[in-house]
């Protein structure tokens, strides 16, 4: 099981339904969509793809394994952008 948490040097603001994440150590600016912002808020604490998918399905009243696959792909992208740390447990 892999857990993810956002890096402490990354800070985000919401603007017109999109989120802008500033990484103050890497000097990067990343924008994510509204559902991505919901996931980002959850990543204040350690999360697994499953726990985020559960919260997303509850918030957006949706079902299906596709949601979990979407979350895993999104987390992998955030990791490539160096915005989250992850641990394999």
């Amino acid at each position: 099981m892999t857990t993810y948490v956002r890096k402490s040097e990354a800070d985000a603001v919401e603007l017109d339904g999109e989120w802008i994440i500033l990484n103050m150590e890497q000097y990067t600016v990343t924008t994510i969509n509204e559902v991505g912002g919901f996931c980002w808020e959850l990543l204040r604490d350690k999360q697994t793809p499953e726990s985020i998918a559960q919260a997303v399905m509850k918030e957006y009243d949706t079902q299906g394994r596709a949601v979990e696959a979407d979350i895993e792909e999104f987390l992998a992208h955030l990791s490539r952008c160096e915005l989250v740390d992850y641990e394999r447990e």
């Binding site: 999109e18 924008t31 919901f38 996931c39 957006y60 992208h77």
Partner: peptide
Amino acid sequence: KGYNAPHVLSHLAVQ
């Protein structure tokens, strides 16, 4: 709200 897959829209390095 309607569900859209979470996405990274852009990623820029600033100098």
